[in-house]
Design a protein around this nucleic acid. Structure first.
Lengths: 138, 138
DNA sequence: GTAGGGTCTGTAGTAGCTACAGGCTCAAGA
DNA sequence: TCTTGAGCCTGTAGCTACTACAGACCCTAC
C-alpha cells in the first residue's frame, strides 16, 4: 500500500517505532492538535512524512523536560499561529524552570520528613508506629 | 437539625471547615472508601463525628507527604482489613521515599538542562533559539 | 411565608495518556 | 486464489485525585 522504499513515508506503526512513542499516544497528539492530521492513503491509512517524525521527536523531548502540552503548543507556535520569538521561548522556559524548582523544594521537604520518621521506626511489631504518629501530627 | 452544641456532630460543611478540606473531596474520599460512610439524619444529611475529622486529617497529612490513595489505604489497613504492623508501615514509607528521591533526581536533571539552555538564550528576536535547538536535539 | 443558605444526588470535566472492541485492509504463504 | 495473521481504523472507557456543576431538597431566620 505505502511505498516503503521512500524513506519519508511512514505508517503509524513505523512512526511509533522510529520515535519510540506509543502508537496510541500519536493518535492522542493528533486529536489534541499537537501533531497535524497526516494525509491518508486510499484505504484511509495515515501517511506520515519525515517532518512528522521531527515534530513528534520535538514533542517527546519537551515532554521529557517536563513541559506541559500547553507549553509545547506555545513553543511550537500553535497557540497564536505564529512561531514564538526567542524572547517568548526564554520566558516560557524560565517559568517552567521556576515550577520545576518549586516541585524540587516540595519533594525535598517531603523527603526529609519521610527519612526522619522512617529512621525512627523500629520495624518491630510494636503498637506505636512513629510514621503513623508523624502523619497524625502526634 | 443537627445539635451544634455537641462538639462531635458535624455536617459536611463543618467538617470541611474544620479540616480545610474541600467539601467535594470529602464526598470523593467516601465514595472511594478512604472515609467510612457516616450515619445520616432523618433528612439524609451526613453526620460526622470527631473520629471522622481525625481520620480525614490523617488522610490529608499523608497526601501532603505525597502518599498515593492506594498507599494511604494500606497505611490505614483498608486493603486487607487489619491494621498494618509497624514493619509494614516502615516498608511502605521506604518505598515511597525511594519514589520521592527518584522524582527529585529526575527534576534535578531537568532543572540543569533548562537552566543551561535558558542561560544561553539571548532573549533577542533572533532566528536561532538555543532552547528550541536543545529540545530538537541539535 | 419566603428568602437564603446548606445539603443531597448524579454526572462531567481536568491532564496525559493507555487499552480495549469490533471492523477493515494489506502482504505473504499454500 | 484463498487464507491467515498482522496492522490499521474508529469510538469509547479506563486511570489518578480531584473539582465543578445542575437540579432538587431541606433548614433556619426574618
Amino acid at each position: 500500500m505505502i511505498d516503503h522504499e521512500s524513506e519519508s513515508s511512514l505508517t503509524r506503526g513505523d512512526l511509533a517505532r522510529a520515535t519510540g512513542c506509543n502508537i496510541e499516544t500519536i493518535r492522542y497528539y493528533e486529536k489534541t492538535g499537537l501533531l497535524p492530521d497526516p494525509p491518508r492513503s486510499a484505504a484511509g491509512y495515515r501517511i506520515y512524512s519525515a517532518a512528522h517524525a521531527t515534530r513528534l521527536r520535538f514533542i517527546l523531548r519537551a515532554r521529557e523536560l517536563g513541559f506541559s502540552m500547553e507549553d509545547i503548543r506555545g513553543l511550537m507556535g500553535l497557540d497564536d499561529g505564529a512561531a514564538p520569538t526567542c524572547a517568548e521561548v526564554k520566558e516560557r522556559t524560565k517559568r517552567h524552570l521556576a515550577d520545576v524548582r518549586a516541585k524540587i523544594a516540595d519533594l525535598r521537604r517531603i523527603e526529609s520528613v519521610l527519612a526522619a520518621t522512617a529512621s525512627r521506626c523500629s520495624g518491630a511489631e510494636v503498637p506505636n508506629c512513629p510514621v503513623l504518629d508523624a502523619i497524625s501530627g502526634n
